[in-house]
C-alpha cells in the first residue's frame, strides 16, 4: 500500500504547471459565461417573442442542448465535425461547446428573470413612448438581473466544474494538467486531492463574489438614507 504522502500532497500546491491550469480553467469559465449571457439573452427574447418561428427555434435549441450530455456535445464538435470538413482546434472547440451549452441554461434563467419583472413595468415604459429595445435594456434587464443573480451564481459554479470535462479532448486545463502530472509519478491521490482543493478554492472565491453581488444589487435600488 502506497499510503497518502502529505508532504508530497502539499508540494503540488507549489507546482506552477498546475497553477497555470487554474488560470486556464478560470478563462475557460469566464469566456463561455460571458458569451452565454449575451447569446442567452437573445435566446430568451426569442423564446418570449410573438414570432412563432423564433419561439420554436429557441425551444428546440434549449431542448437539444439541455437534453444531451456536455461530453457528447464536446466530442461531436471536436471529433465529429471534422468528418464534415469543419476542423476546430482544441481551444476553439472547448470554448464553442461550453458557450453553446451554457447559452441554453442561461437563457432559461434570463427568461425567468424577465418574467419576474411585474408586467406594469413594461406597460409604464411603453406608455412613455419607449421602443422595445429601450424597454428591454433600461427597464427589464436591470430588474431581471437582480432576480437572476442567485441562479446565475449556481451556473457559474457548475460551469467552473464542468470545464474539467474538456480534458477529454486534451484541453490543458486544471484537470488535464493534473492527469499529466499524475502520470509522471503516479501520485494519484496527492495530485487529484490537490486539484480538488484548487477547484474548491475557485468555487469558494466565486461564492464570496456572488454574495457581494447580491448585497450590492439589492442595496443599490433600496439605499438606506435618513428620512427628510
Amino acid at each position: 500500500m502506497k499510503g497518502f504522502d502529505f508532504a508530497n500532497f502539499l508540494s503540488y500546491f507549489g507546482n506552477g504547471f498546475l497553477w497555470e491550469g487554474v488560470v486556464i480553467t478560470l478563462w475557460l469559465t469566464a469566456i463561455p459565461m460571458a458569451g452565454g449571457l449575451v447569446l442567452g439573452t437573445f435566446l430568451a427574447l426569442m423564446r418570449m417573442s410573438k414570432n412563432r418561428f423564433l419561439r420554436d427555434f429557441a425551444s428546440v435549441y434549449i431542448w437539444i442542448f439541455r437534453g444531451t450530455p456536455l461530453l457528447i456535445q464536446l466530442v461531436i464538435v471536436y471529433a465529429g465535425l471534422p468528418q464534415l470538413g469543419i476542423r476546430l482546434g482544441v481551444v476553439p472547440a472547448a470554448l464553442l461547446t461550453l458557450t453553446l451549452n451554457e447559452t441554453a441554461y442561461l437563457s432559461e434563467i434570463i427568461r425567468s428573470g424577465f418574467m419576474g419583472v411585474p408586467p406594469g413595468q413594461r406597460e409604464a415604459a411603453i406608455s412613455l413612448g419607449s421602443p422595445p429595445w429601450l424597454v428591454i435594456w433600461k427597464i427589464m434587464l436591470p430588474q431581471a438581473f437582480r432576480l437572476m443573480i442567485p441562479p446565475l451564481g449556481n451556473s457559474v459554479n457548475g460551469l467552473l466544474k464542468a470545464t474539467s470535462i474538456t480534458s477529454v479532448i486534451s484541453m490543458e486545463e486544471l484537470m488535464r494538467r493534473s492527469q499529466m502530472l499524475m502520470q509522471e509519478k503516479f501520485d494519484v491521490l496527492e495530485v487529484f486531492m490537490c486539484a480538488a482543493v484548487l477547484y474548491l478554492m475557485m468555487t469558494t472565491a466565486w461564492g464570496l463574489i456572488q454574495r457581494q453581488l447580491e448585497i450590492r444589487f439589492h442595496t443599490e435600488s433600496v439605499p438606506v438614507t435618513e428620512e427628510g
Binding site: 413595468q121 406597460e123 409604464a124 406608455s127 435600488s221
Partner: peptide, 14 residues
C-alpha cells in the same frame, strides 16, 4: 402624446 397613470403606480424601482 398620451400620458398614463396606473393603479399600481408602476414607478421604476431601480
Amino acid at each position: 402624446d398620451v400620458g398614463m397613470v396606473f393603479q399600481q403606480f408602476n414607478l421604476f424601482p431601480h
